[in-house]
Design a protein around this nucleic acid. Structure first.
Length: 560
RNA sequence: UGUCCGAUGGUGUAACGGUAGCACUGCAGAUUUUGGUUCUGCCGGUCAAGGUUCGAACCCUUGUCGGACAACCA
């Protein structure tokens, strides 16, 4: 702190590698990363970890980070996804170097390099059926057998490969394979497929190509073209690294090589993180959309009310390493609360209202009570909230037979109405079903907030809204989408079996203080004593809709 | 019977051969006109066995456990 020159910030293993490279002046000291999403789905919190890592590394080491779309599979990819991905990265607050890059921009170069490999005797066309190729590959514990295509002449290979490119052959009829080693214990080195035939329109190259490169043939080469120095990816690509390096060695013209570094992907408790499963939830309508506030997508979290800052703080807190990990979803919630606590204006909203009549308060009288907007932020100022004879309080804040530790309202008890008066409960009424229908209180005029001369001390303070000035709104309460800690971790049980039936509760008749009428979509508030809420995009001038981002910590509710 | 990777409190993550620290969670207390925030304290950990060393979470060996790899997906 005061001795920064002596203090060594602890580094994660990737930072250690980078600093060592810097010391050795590798790549003339350039630091250049990339975030390479496939545009086949929406980004989720796991991607956020990767985004914060890559762009964050570029920021802290004065380097650059490219956004590159890994768009080599037109069967799954779509512009809808590239747009959402750009939006999400922007929203998180990161700037990519230059324009977004696309692997599809390198198709010509990739093709030329493939031809070079053929000419070098390092690649060949295989026209065997897919099943045969798979069989010949063998299994991890047992070597594969070589394809007859390996013996084809260079001339024939060139001709066939050209034919593939020109669309002379049907889908699946042949592939281009690298000639590496069918006996390698690493499956990825057993003559991996470089190109497949796909007569499919690509969202950027149109119908120009009838063949598309595979991931392994596209990725490292793209890194090379862009001058990437550190190619950071997740652990499942670790076994690809020898192939990544092999391909680079075939095409590189100097000693520069991008270096692939793998880290452990994020797992969150009570959450599924695979794109396939998230897509299934959307397509089969288990949730309403990709940005459903229950989704772990960046767009879902944004709509839920999460701030970019809280997600970045979360990513910082969870760290980066190579061991498998499951982060408690509570840590993500902690991160939003922490941020929202410092910035969210406090307001009154009653979710489950019950009417209180203050019998000794004059009918028709309105007092504007001065309420602090945010005790954490002196700049936030204050606002006026109207107080009247009839108000609403939270149904949960009243108990007919209240235990000793219950600090709220009950027959004969005194509580403070925050920012207003201390009231005493004198009586209550029930409807025919036995539910409390009205509560009758008296107030003490000497206890007005800010000018209390009574000397009274009470245990409980309640939020409230004026029955005549508040307005109705819909509030949506969210709970975790899955009831199991690891919904995707059960071999015998489909993850959808663990869907929480109460993940969304809609409260149609909530009562909000009048100042909230001016709130706009995305605005965030602390509904005092309840939690953090934001205005949902479903809001209309007639009916406002609020999402509960996260409840406040509740040491009372936990105890019960 | 294959190759690669990993193993530090309940959960994450540091310690780079020299006092096992930090965050979240949990528990206890203080403050509080939010049972919020803030503050204080506490509980709790190096997978196992050998070896190297004055000294090992860290280096070596063996074992155990976990993960990844057998799409014309990325």
């Amino acid at each position: 702190m005061d001795t920064p020159e002596n203090e060594k910030r602890s580094l994660n293993f990737i930072e250690s590698i980078i600093e060592e490279d810097l010391r050795e002046n590798k790549n003339e000291g350039r630091i250049h990363l990339r975030f390479p999403p496939e545009p086949n789905g929406y980004l989720h919190i796991g991607h956020a970890k990767s985004i914060c890592l890559n762009f964050g590394l570029a920021e802290s080491y004065n380097g650059m980070c490219n956004l590159r779309f890994d768009d080599t599979n037109p069967e799954k990819e779509d512009v809808e996804y590239v747009d959402s991905i750009k939006e999400d990265i922007n929203w998180l607050g990161f700037k990519w170097n230059d324009q977004p890059y696309f692997a599809s921009d390198y198709f010509d170069q990739l093709y030329d390099w493939a031809v070079k490999l053929i000419k070098d005797g390092k690649a060949y066309v295989d026209d065997q059926p897919q099943e045969l190729i798979r069989e010949q590959r063998g299994i991890p514990t047992q070597a594969g057998v070589e394809s007859p295509g390996r013996k084809r002449s260079i001339e024939d290979n060139i001709k066939l490969f050209e034919g593939m490119k020109n669309g002379e052959y049907p889908d699946g009829s042949m592939v281009l394979r690298a000639k590496v080693d069918m006996t390698s214990p690493n499956m990825h080195l057993r003559d991996p497929i470089m190109y497949r035939i796909l007569h499919k329109e690509h969202h950027r190259t149109g119908d120009k190509w009838n063949i598309y490169p595979m991931y392994d043939w596209a990725h490292g080469q793209s890194d090379y073209i862009e001058g990437i120095t550190h190619s950071v990816c997740t652990l499942e690509f670790e076994v690809h690294r020898p192939l990544y390096n092999w391909f680079l060695d075939q095409i590189a013209e100097n000693k520069y090589r991008p270096r692939q570094i793998e880290f452990a992907r994020l797992n969150l408790s009570y959450t599924v993180m695979s794109k396939r499963k998230l897509l299934e939830l959307v397509e089969d309508k288990y949730v309403n959309a990709w940005d459903d506030p229950r989704m772990p997508t960046i767009s879902g979290l944004r709509r839920r009310g999460y701030t970019a800052g809280s997600i970045r703080a979360f990513a910082e807190r969870i760290g980066v390493a190579k061991r498998d990990n499951v982060i408690d979803v509570g840590l993500l919630e902690f991160s939003v609360r922490e941020h929202l606590n410092s910035i969210a204006p406090r307001v009154f909203g009653v979710l489950n209202p019950v009417k209180v009549v203050i019998t000794n308060y004059p009918e028709g009288k309105v007092e504007d009570m001065e309420l602090i907007n945010n005790p954490e932020d002196a700049e936030a100022g204050s606002r006026k909230v109207p107080f009247t004879r009839e108000i609403f309080i939270e149904r949960d804040d009243f108990m007919e037979d209240a235990p000793k530790k219950f600090f709220r309202m009950g027959p004969g008890r005194e509580v403070r109405l925050k920012g207003a008066y201390i009231v005493k409960c004198e009586d209550f009424a029930k409807d025919t079903n036995g539910n409390i229908s009205e509560i009758y209180c008296t107030y003490d005029p000497d206890t007005k907030s800010g000018s209390d001369s009574s000397g009274k001390k009470v245990k409980g303070t309640l939020h409230w809204v004026s029955a005549t000035h508040s307005f109705n709104a819909e509030v949506r309460l969210y709970d975790r989408l899955f009831s199991d800690e690891d919904p995707a971790g059960h071999k015998e049980v489909d993850f959808k079996e663990f869907l929480n039936p109460d993940s969304l509760r809609i409260l149609p008749g909530c009562k909000l203080e009048p100042s909230l009428k001016d709130a706009r979509i995305g605005d965030k508030f602390q509904f005092q004593r309840l939690g953090y809420f934001c205005v949902d995009k479903d809001s209309t001038p007639e009916k406002m809709v609020f999402n509960r981002t996260v409840p406040l910590r509740d040491s009372w509710g936990k105890r019960k």
